[in-house]
Amino acid sequence: MSATGRVQEPKPQAGFSAWWYRRGRFTGAHIALTIMAVTMLVPFSWMVLASFKPLQEVEQLNPFPSVWRFDNYLRVFEQVSFARYYFNSIFVAAWVTFLQCLTSAMAAYAFARLRWRGRDMVFRLYLATLMIPGVVVMIPNYTVMVKLHLLDSYVGLIVPAAFGAFGTFLLRQFMLTIPASLDEAAEIDGATPWQIFWDVIMPLCRAGLVTLAIFTFLGNYGSFFWPLILVKSEHLRTLPIGMLYFDSVYGRQTNLIMAASVMNIVPLIILFVAAQRHIVRGVQLGAIKG
């Protein structure tokens, strides 16, 4: 917010964004965006409002609760170990995201910036594994976890999700857009690939890295199936598993599901708001350094 809020007099800026800005002022883009954004906001506000409703009213079309039940939020914590599930979800997703970004970036560097024999063959192999539906590798993966004695553990939740072809593919595409002259120049200055990777390529890939981090965190945070079959102990449950409690045949406690969901997405919104400006500003900053 602060970065954009400060813009009072539009400075004459170069580049794509500035060009759009000068144009955009007159197109009424604000109005168009606002109308569209409101339709996006509806389900979210509905969810927040429903989380304050008594159970009987959740299914009614009237969006406002007749009585505001703030204690719905407390009941979520009372009925399940919500705090623990919260911690587990964030903890697991954070590790996965970290490992995924690091290893994918390294692999993508090897695929995009280094020349070696068989490079494209290996990359296509990577790509091909993306085309296999995830459901089918779940049972073999499970067998691997049994052999490694990683069932019912944090490591079992984190490690299989931490390496993937998706991140490699995404970052490779990003690295391809960086002009080759940059690392050639660095190489002439005597930089090792390791130095080029960290000091030239990674800063320029910031937008891609942030994008991948958001995708990975989001995907893992909401993952249901793998934790479901992997975890047995209560203290390892993640949020999607913990929320099963509110959805039994004895009646779905939809209001509590909503309250839990609202709390569920708070970390995601924080992450997104913090990360998104890097997506847009990343390269400009990088370009100055480079």
Partner: peptide
């Protein structure tokens, strides 16, 4: 160098 960069991802992969 490529081998080194690929290794961590490749093992998990």
């Amino acid at each position: 160098a490529a081998l080194g960069f690929l290794l961590p991802n490749f093992l998990g992969f």
